[in-house]
Amino acid sequence: MHIMEGFLPWQWCVFWYLVSAPFIIYGIYLLNRQVKAQRETLSLLAVSGAFIFLLSSLKMPSPVVGSCSHPTGTGLSVVLFGPFITVVLSLIVLIFQALFMAHGGITTLGANVFSMGIAGPLLGYAVYRLGKAVNLNIFINVFLVTAVADLFTYVITSIELAAAFPATHGGFMVSWETFFAIYAVTQIPLAILEGVLIALVFKYIVQSRGDILVKLKVLTPEQVTKIMESFK
């Protein structure tokens, strides 16, 4: 997904920076408020950031020139802290990867933040809220959130690439279909595997720190008790 340094025309680099900026500013505000209000959640913030860093660093070669394929790791943060704090965690990860791992780039940072840190998490959060509204099993919900956030990240990355490099014959739509069809080969199985992994990690968090999930309003005390009883 990471679009490499210097790959996008400068006009598109500026555009994606401008589009991403309001989300980042609001996310920083929410993150500061979260840390001040509930300092005991710092450990989960660190774990969420670590998963974004670890999974998004596992890049696989992609036939899409100037990009790569990998998990995103944003699903856990979306469930625990919502999409806007996830934007900030993703931004930190993407800056570190661009500066020290030659993964992504500074000129393309706005585009990469928008696809992985904004668009994917926002749709994932919508799925999460819908799942809660219909009383979907929490672990299935976490799986779906993670898989959807992963896949939608690549839908948006395909849009970013297609907008910058429309096909000579067929324009934007043909270019987008080509980019996403290539990504889908590796990304669909990766999204499924990532969903299973994050659901298992969430299960461990419920078992070890269910109290924090209650404070974050991810689960009610009754839900934690019911889940814990089902593990026995």
Score class of each variant (00 low, 15 high):
Leu216Ala: 10
Leu18Met: 12
Ile188Arg: 03
Ala111Val: 03
Thr220Lys: 11
Thr186Val: 12
Pro221Glu: 09
Val185His: 08
Ile205Gly: 03
Ala119Leu: 06
Phe143Ser: 04
Thr72His: 04
Gln97Met: 10
Thr86Leu: 11
Ile92Cys: 08
Lys132Gly: 06
Thr225Tyr: 11
Asn135Leu: 10
Val134Gly: 11
Val206Thr: 07
Ile95Arg: 07
Thr225Glu: 15
Gln11Leu: 14
Leu54Ala: 09
Lys132Pro: 06
Lys132Asn: 13
Pro63Tyr: 10
Val174Ile: 13
Thr168Val: 15
Ser230Tyr: 09
Val35Pro: 04
Ala164Thr: 00
Glu222Thr: 13
Thr74Asp: 05
Ala126Glu: 11
Ser56Arg: 00
Thr225Ser: 14
Arg209Pro: 02
Ala98His: 02
Phe165Gly: 00
Thr41Pro: 12
Cys13Tyr: 05
Phe231Trp: 12
Leu54Pro: 07
Leu123Trp: 04
Leu91Cys: 09
Leu197Ile: 13
Val87Arg: 01
Asp211Trp: 07
Ser43Asp: 14
Ile138Ala: 08
Val148Trp: 09
Val201Leu: 13
Ala149Leu: 11
Val35Trp: 07
Gly66Pro: 11
Gly105Ala: 05
Ile212Tyr: 09
Leu54Ile: 12
Leu58Ala: 07
Trp12Phe: 15
Ser48His: 01
Ser43Ala: 15
Ser77Lys: 04
Leu76Gly: 12
Val19Met: 03
Asn137Thr: 08
Arg129Gln: 13
Thr72Arg: 08
Val148Ile: 15
Val196Phe: 13
Phe23Ile: 02
Asp211Ile: 04
Thr153Ala: 15
Leu197Asp: 06
Gly124Ser: 03
Val224Pro: 01
Thr107Leu: 12
Phe165Pro: 00
Leu193Arg: 08
Tyr204Lys: 14
Leu94His: 10
Ala167Asp: 08
Met4Cys: 12
Leu76Cys: 09
Ser208Leu: 09
Gly131Asn: 07
Leu109Pro: 06
Val148Met: 08
Ala50His: 09
Val19Ile: 14
Thr157Cys: 12
Phe51Trp: 03
Phe7Pro: 07
Tyr183Glu: 05
Thr153Arg: 14
Ser56Asp: 00
Leu91Gly: 06
Thr41Cys: 15
Phe165Arg: 00
Leu151Gln: 12
Leu89Ser: 02
Ala126Ile: 12
Lys36Gly: 09
Val134Tyr: 10
Arg209Asp: 08
Ala111Asp: 05
Glu40Lys: 15
Val218Gln: 03
Gly170His: 05
Gly82Phe: 02
His169Ala: 15
Phe165Ile: 00
Asn112Lys: 01
Asn137Cys: 07
Thr74Ile: 12
Asn112Ser: 09
Ser115Cys: 11
His70Tyr: 03
Ile182Phe: 09
His70Lys: 08
Ala191Asp: 02
Pro9Met: 11
Ala37Pro: 04
Ile3Leu: 13
Lys217Trp: 10
Gly171Trp: 05
Gly6Val: 04
Val206His: 00
Leu123Thr: 10
Val64Met: 05
Ser158Trp: 10
Gln223Glu: 14
Pro9Ile: 06
Leu99Gln: 09
Ala164Gln: 00
Asp150His: 15
Asp211Phe: 05
Thr220His: 05
Gln11Arg: 15
Ile24Cys: 03
Asp150Asn: 15
Gly210Asn: 04
Val19Trp: 02
Leu190Thr: 03
Leu42Met: 15
Val206Gly: 01
Leu42Val: 15
Val87Tyr: 03
Val145Met: 01
Leu58Thr: 00
Lys217Pro: 09
Ser90Met: 07
Val78Gln: 01
Phe51Gly: 01
Ala98Arg: 02
Gln223Asn: 11
